[in-house]
Design a binder for these strands. Sequence first.
DNA 1: CCGTTATCTGGTATCGGTTTCAGTGAGGGG
DNA 2: CCCCTCACTGAAACCGATACCAGATAACGG
Lengths: 352, 352
Amino acid sequence: MATIYDVAARAGVSTATVSRWLAGQPVRAAAVIREAVEELGYSPSPMAQSLKSGRRGAIGVVVPDVTNPFFAAVVKGLEQASRGFGYHMLLANSDESSELEADILAELTPRVDGFILAPAHEQDLGPHALSEAGVPAVLLDREVSGGEAFDVVLVDNEGGARAAASHLVSLGHERIAMINGPTDTTPGRGRRAGFLAGLAEGDLALDPVYDMTGDFREESGRQITLQLLALPESPTAIFTANNLMTVGALKALRDMRVRVPDDISIIGFDDLSLGSLLQPPLTCIARPDVEQGALAMRLLLSRLTDGILDDGRHIVLNTSLLVRGSTRAPSAAHAPEIRPRLRARSGGATSE
Amino acid sequence: MATIYDVAARAGVSTATVSRWLAGQPVRAAAVIREAVEELGYSPSPMAQSLKSGRRGAIGVVVPDVTNPFFAAVVKGLEQASRGFGYHMLLANSDESSELEADILAELTPRVDGFILAPAHEQDLGPHALSEAGVPAVLLDREVSGGEAFDVVLVDNEGGARAAASHLVSLGHERIAMINGPTDTTPGRGRRAGFLAGLAEGDLALDPVYDMTGDFREESGRQITLQLLALPESPTAIFTANNLMTVGALKALRDMRVRVPDDISIIGFDDLSLGSLLQPPLTCIARPDVEQGALAMRLLLSRLTDGILDDGRHIVLNTSLLVRGSTRAPSAAHAPEIRPRLRARSGGATSE
DNA sequence: CCGTTATCTGGTATCGGTTTCAGTGAGGGG
DNA sequence: CCCCTCACTGAAACCGATACCAGATAACGG
């Protein structure tokens, strides 16, 4: 708890000189000051420094839920990339709620130099309040409408979802369901668009009955899957738009004793930590999560330290299709005899 | 960026009066001040407040790795419990390194009012430096030697590991291996003790050949499992001392095409997020992770807000044995004909 | 040895609040 | 109508650092 005054007194110099020594400037009494600092165990008060300098030395990290392994990985990437830059991470979960997110942003804004933010919804106004307040923010995994001024680090949602669709189509599936997230989120919108495009390339359309929207959480994936299974003509393949909903879907399939991939194929966006251990191992669209975090942090740091002020930079990371065991051609019982043109619903037993 | 001076000037009062109004004290010019505050969009600078008051409004959270689902859940619990108390979370990963942890603590100490800390090792000196500095800390999941003065929130490592051992013993296993974490960590020590006790209750001892120590990370679980499988007499059951090493073990078993539980049984400390989805579903020792975090935070908050100064409080949470499908009686080929007394190694084919 | 310049120094204002202390005014009682 | 009390007010000190500015040393050339 020693202050710069204690050091100055002990060294017999003024606080100004001590301050200069601390800043690395040449000082005659360097030896005496060093001694005093060491004996007192002095270290400058970050609060006082912040007050004077305006630099807060912290970065706000707002994600929907750290418990989601994707965001946990992102946070890890953020920390790795920020190490050595003298910034700390103020972490908060928005719980997918725009209101909570706005509260958090308001509370954190005066305490941080910048934000890494995964907005709950594209209509969020929070980020705009930030840019008005002059606090730089990098949007992570999700954009915000009218937010062209922000740096964004995205993943190729369209491409990934298209690849998922193509994969299913190429296997011969026609009764394909999508369990998507809210379409007022970037991933929800992009994955939907990509998936539809992928189907279209195979001359398929998404049957409205198979076009489901959840909330990116496990329970919704489970519920929707149960609904799909209860359909008179249940799908032969499901695309789940994120990791948590994939888990929910898998649990529903297990509970209903639907065999994967015999009865139904499933492909998820995002790999699961145990994806390769599942029986069958999960076919999925994987993406670089830690890197995505690291990249976002680097963008923010460049703005913070180099004072970059140009327009929002867009970075889109590539996904990769990991074909494992949870997808295969539909079983004979489900396969349509003649391939219809648009709606692929030529009858056949419902699964189980 | 309006300051209290702007507000005072606009309202025609002194900053002292504005400050009093902000603190909720009765003030004659309340109406004018409120108006000025609203028009200017004023909110007090937390930095200036911290400098004056000494209250920093933040809590340091230091865990080995947020990517570990257990710690992610803990962090969630921490946040839930802290909501509404006006504290923010400064998160940092120590990466299981005492040195990094010490650095982090030193850097964070002047910025926080208290710590939630999962120390990398029991010999860590970091926590003691904290108590000297007068910064309260709650140890999470791991104790520290000579740290009786700290609040600690543990899980019943002994009881959980004993239950795991008992379970394996009751199934008839005798060639039982343990993949433990470092014994200079609380979980490592406790789980070892409990596991040995559980074996002893079944008149078994842990064969040194089966007594393995990893580092609580996935790769070590994998490597050690491979070693165990390469043994002339490989074990019929494995106890893995945490979630990550369980994953590693499962991957090794999969890669070596060892069937679970036919060829080998496996029981892990900690459930896996997909534990119930694995084939077979994982038998494990589960524990309340979010609650453990919430509890730790409540302890810290009580110290912070009520100014409690009594000695360290110990809280030990109960585990529960979840018997699922990854354990069963050893197959005939592996079962000893006559049950020996201490070392259970009566020959039999190695697994696979 | 002196004048000039280049370094280094301390006093002080400042960042944006809170708190003390000595008033100032209003209200009540006599 | 005066005095006393009580509630509220503003000036100024303070939290711990940094930065400007003028003044003091030292270094240097002549």
